[in-house]
């Protein structure tokens, strides 16, 4: 903890510059998001338009990224698929963050049985392979995109709760919290109005990392047949449907969605770390 009472010289302050790589990643993400939003206008073909005369074609003038085993245009499918692939992680993290923040803050702030309960639940969850838990929930709730999102949200909640707990515990011992106590601010108000906003920069950084993780998990579940179902062209599903092509020696149907997943995960991590650094720099 910094107890320095000296203000560092301006020149010595870390200049949190955004950097070329971060800019490239941001532009890439914007392109993907805009592509997903405007898919109906941008896609050259309908995502499910079958063309048996043109199966497994490599990239060419008519099909920029080639076609799959039914002759469907891979670019169009990837654009429409981006909607499911990107919205899924956002929704599940939204659910998990609301629940995880509440539980983690409560556990740190109240201690006692709330804390013990959280510790037990996270122990069990961490001992359990994540995918097995999710598949179990899906077995109970039935398969499909919505249940996969709920199942993954349940899996991520204790993870976020545990991280929140550690951040809140570290924040609670800072003297400004004692100062609020002395002013007579209620404990709930201190926690919700002051402590939680103060952990936000660290939280944002963590959520970005989790976003990549969640995107991968969702794609994996679709790939296994648990998540999005055809006719969706969610990227994990595209990889799965493209497998037959690889056996035949055509790699584009797998490469396009696979590369998109990898690139989005990397770009989100790069941009997220920068954003969280900036938020932190503004607060220190």
């Amino acid at each position: 903890m910094s107890t320095l009472t000296v203000t560092p010289l301006p020149a010595l302050q870390p200049r949190s510059r955004f950097g070329v790589i971060a800019w490239v990643c941001s532009v890439f993400l914007v392109v993907i998001v805009v592509g997903a939003l405007l898919a109906p206008m941008l896609a050259p073909y309908a995502p499910d338009e079958i063309d048996f005369d043109n199966i497994w074609s490599s990239p060419n003038a008519a099909h920029w990224l080639g076609t799959d085993q039914l002759g469907r245009d891979l670019l169009s499918r990837a654009l429409f698929g981006a909607r499911d692939s990107l919205l899924g992680p956002v929704l599940l993290l939204l659910l998990a963050t609301v629940a995880g923040l509440a539980i983690g803050t409560l556990a740190a702030w109240k201690g006692g049985w709330v804390d013990t309960l959280l510790a037990r639940i996270t122990d069990v969850m961490f001992a359990f392979p994540g995918i097995l838990f999710v598949v179990l929930v899906i077995a109970v709730l039935g398969q499909g995109a919505a249940t996969t999102i709920v199942a993954l949200a349940l899996a991520y909640t204790p993870v976020i709760a545990k991280y929140t707990r550690s951040l809140v515990l570290a924040e609670m011992v800072r003297p400004y919290v004692d100062a609020y106590r002395l002013q007579g601010v209620s404990p709930t108000s201190i926690a919700v109005r002051f402590v939680v906003p103060n952990i936000a920069p660290s939280m944002v950084g963590y959520l970005v990392v989790l976003f990549g993780d969640a995107l991968m998990s969702l794609a994996t579940l679709s790939y296994l047949g648990f998540g999005s179902q055809p006719p969706s062209s969610e990227w994990g599903l595209m990889v799965q449907e493209g497998q037959s092509a690889v056996i035949q020696g055509y790699f584009w149907p797998v490469f396009v969605p696979g590369a998109l997943i990898a690139l989005v995960v990397v770009a989100v991590n790069v941009v997220g770390v920068k954003i969280s650094d900036r938020m932190n720099a503004r607060m220190r």
Binding site: M1, T3, T5, P175, Y176, A179, Q183, G184, F194
Partner: peptide, 18 residues
Amino acid sequence: ASQVQMVFQDPYGSLDRR
């Protein structure tokens, strides 16, 4: 709160940085 107030040892940590 109107009886006792305290100024803490660490002047930076005792202020809400936001």
